[in-house]
């Protein structure tokens, strides 16, 4: 059983890697044969070497740490505010009428438009960067959480009423589990925007961070460093998203996708075989 699951996983991994690996090989071959100009389009081997050199000198880790720290602070503040305000406007019609129009109006402003103001108010160092990331994370989380709460099936809430649950028990046993899947989706899209805005913030001026590596690579004409930083962003983004999903996985086991349930019932039916008819 375990073995089968492992081989299934490795097959999936191989399938997922097929296209990027083929592209990398073709790219590498093209660069070596002189089809592309390798100076502007460095082949994977050059990017890997650059990445290795950055990692070996410890520089890469310092940049990653700086970026992740900003992201964590911005995401934490933005997500927390988004969850709290989203819960408030989702649960209370009065709060929604009072706050939502203003929040929606603010949402219409492109978040990058705040940058000059944040720099004037908060300076050019960390605070303005964290504020920008927090603004970027806030809106998708706010919208997602509010929608999750307003979309709770009233029929399921009524089950809680029929069993005379107290407001606290209703929240814990019905409302929270009901909104959790949509909230995780909201946090994931918030995290994605967080990555977008951490790059924006670092491009506007930073002395360390992966965004600084990008800018530095442009100014010094080192495309391999730019691509190495992009690669590092991709890996970091995937790891953060995966960690977020994994953190909530135990609570969302019931939601396993339709495809998974199909594979599982075909591979090994759970419990007794289904009865005929009903």
């Amino acid at each position: 059983m375990k073995k089968r699951a492992n081989s299934l996983l490795s097959t999936r991994l191989a399938t997922g890697l097929a296209i990027p690996l083929t592209a990398a090989i073709l790219y590498e071959a093209g660069a070596r044969l002189g089809i592309f100009e390798a100076r502007l389009l460095p082949p994977p081997s050059r990017i890997a070497a650059t990445l290795w050199a950055l990692a070996a000198s410890g520089e890469l880790w310092a940049h990653i740490a700086a970026t992740m720290l900003r992201l964590a602070a911005g995401f934490g503040i933005g997500a927390l505010a988004g969850i709290m305000l989203g819960a408030l406007t989702g649960a209370s019609q009065t709060a929604s009428r009072l706050l939502d129009p203003t929040i929606q109006a603010l949402r219409a402003i492109p978040s990058l438009a705040w940058v000059p103001l944040f720099i004037l108010w908060l300076g050019i160092f960390e605070a303005s960067k964290v504020a920008l990331i927090a603004v970027g994370v806030f809106f998708p989380v706010y919208l997602g959480v509010m929608a999750a709460i307003t979309n709770i099936d009233r029929k399921i809430i009524e089950v809680g009423r029929a069993f005379r649950l107290s407001p606290l028990a209703l929240t814990r046993r019905v409302l929270l589990p009901a909104v959790l899947p949509d909230c995780v989706v909201a946090l994931r899209s918030g995290l994605g925007l967080g990555f977008m805005f951490v790059v924006a913030a670092e491009l506007m001026g930073a002395s360390e961070g992966l965004g600084f590596l990008l800018l530095d690579g442009q100014q010094l004409g080192k495309p391999d460093q730019i691509l190495a930083a992009i690669f590092a962003f991709a890996v970091a983004g995937k790891i953060c998203d995966g960690a977020l999903v994994a953190a909530f996985r135990p609570l969302l086991r019931w939601q396993d996708s339709f495809a998974q349930s199909l594979t599982r019932s075909a591979a090994a039916p759970l419990g007794p075989p289904p009865l005929p008819a009903h």
Binding site: K155, P177, W254
Partner: peptide, 26 residues
């Protein structure tokens, strides 16, 4: 709603995040 009165709705209205036994024991 009264403890001595049980209700069955038109739809099963089971809680999807609880398994069958947990739903019965709700």
């Amino acid at each position: 709603p009264h403890p001595a009165i049980g209700v069955v709705f038109q739809e099963p209205r089971l809680l999807p995040w609880l398994n069958v036994a947990q739903n019965v024991g709700f």
